[in-house]
C-alpha cells in the first residue's frame, strides 16, 4: 500500500502539493487526472523516491520510498533512454538493476507492441519510444507501476496500443498501477479508482464505477465539472 499523509511540496514559490491525503492499494489501476501543473508528476516522483515531501509522510508498505525503489517501476514523462541504445541494450541495462526483470514477459510484449529489439532509441518515432518505455516497465514484476503521462503527444492508434499493453501486462491482484494523465478518454474503462487533482489539492477521488452510477456522467464530464467548480470539496 502507498500512503500520503498531509503531504506538501513546494518548488520555490510554487506549491506543487498542498496537504494531500490518499492511499493506493495493491490490485487496483488508479488514474490521477488533472490539468498541466496540477501536481500529478510530483505525486509520481514522491512515490518513486526521487523527490521528498517538505511536510507530511509518503510511505510505501510502511517504509520510506527511497528504501523501496526495487518495488517501483517508474515510467517518467521525459525521455530517459540514451539515444544510441538499441531496445535490447536498454533492456539488458535495466535487467541488471532489477531482480524482478521478467525476460519471458519482455519477449511476449515485444511483438504485441509491434517493437523490434534492434530499434535505436534516437532514430525511432515518439510513439515508438513511448512504447519502448512502457515495455521496459511492464517487463518488471514490480508491485507498483507508475506511468507518468504515457499518452502525451502520442497519436491515437499508438495510445490504443499502449492501453491494450497495460491490460495485457497487468498482474491482477498483485500489482498496483498508477497512471497520471490529462487525457482521460483513452483510459475511461481502464481505471478503477480515480483521483482528480488541481492546484496541488485533491478535488475529488473515488471508485470510477461508483462515480458513474451516482452522477450518470463519464469521467471526462466529471473532470470538467470538478475543475470548473474549482476548490469545492466533495
Amino acid at each position: 500500500m502507498i500512503e500520503f499523509r498531509n503531504v506538501s511540496k513546494r518548488f520555490g514559490p510554487v506549491v506543487a502539493l498542498n496537504s494531500v491525503n490518499m492511499e493506493f492499494s495493491a490490485g487496483n489501476i488508479t488514474g490521477i487526472f488533472g490539468p498541466n501543473g496540477a501536481g500529478k508528476s510530483t505525486i509520481m516522483k514522491l512515490i518513486a523516491g526521487i523527490n521528498y515531501p517538505d511536510q507530511g509522510d509518503v510511505k510505501l508498505d510502511g517504509e520510506n520510498p527511497r528504501a523501496k525503489r526495487q518495488s517501483v517501476a517508474y515510467l517518467p514523462e521525459i525521455d530517459h533512454l540514451y539515444p544510441w541504445w538499441t531496445l535490447r541494450q536498454a533492456a539488458d541495462f535495466i535487467s541488471t538493476f532489477y531482480s524482478d526483470w521478467d525476460y519471458g514477459r519482455y519477449k511476449e510484449l515485444l511483438p504485441f507492441l509491434n517493437l523490434d529489439e534492434q530499434m535505436i532509441m534516437g532514430k525511432i518515432s515518439k510513439g515508438q519510444r513511448a512504447k519502448c518505455k512502457l515495455l521496459l516497465v511492464l517487463a518488471r514484476k514490480a508491485p507498483y507501476l507508475l506511468l507518468d503521462e504515457p499518452f502525451s503527444g502520442i497519436d491515437l492508434l499508438t495510445r490504443e496500443e499502449i492501453a491494450d499493453a497495460v491490460i495485457k501486462g497487468y498482474r491482477e491482484g498483485e500489482q498496483a498501477i498508477i497512471i497520471s494523465t490529462h487525457e482521460i478518454d483513452e483510459i475511461e474503462s481502464l481505471v478503477e479508482k480515480v483521483v482528480f487533482i488541481d492546484q496541488g489539492r485533491i478535488q475529488l477521488s473515488g471508485d470510477a464505477e461508483q462515480l458513474r452510477m451516482e452522477r450518470n456522467k463519464s469521467l471526462v464530464e466529471i473532470m470538467k465539472e470538478v475543475f470548473r467548480h474549482g476548490n469545492q470539496q466533495i
Binding site: N28, I29, A163, I167, K168, E172, S189, L190, V191, E192
Partner: peptide
C-alpha cells in the same frame, strides 16, 4: 482476462 483484453476494460471490472 480474454474478455478484458477484447473490449479494453479493467480486468477487475470484468471480474
Amino acid at each position: 482476462r480474454e474478455y478484458a483484453q477484447m473490449v479494453r476494460v479493467n480486468p477487475n471490472t470484468v471480474q
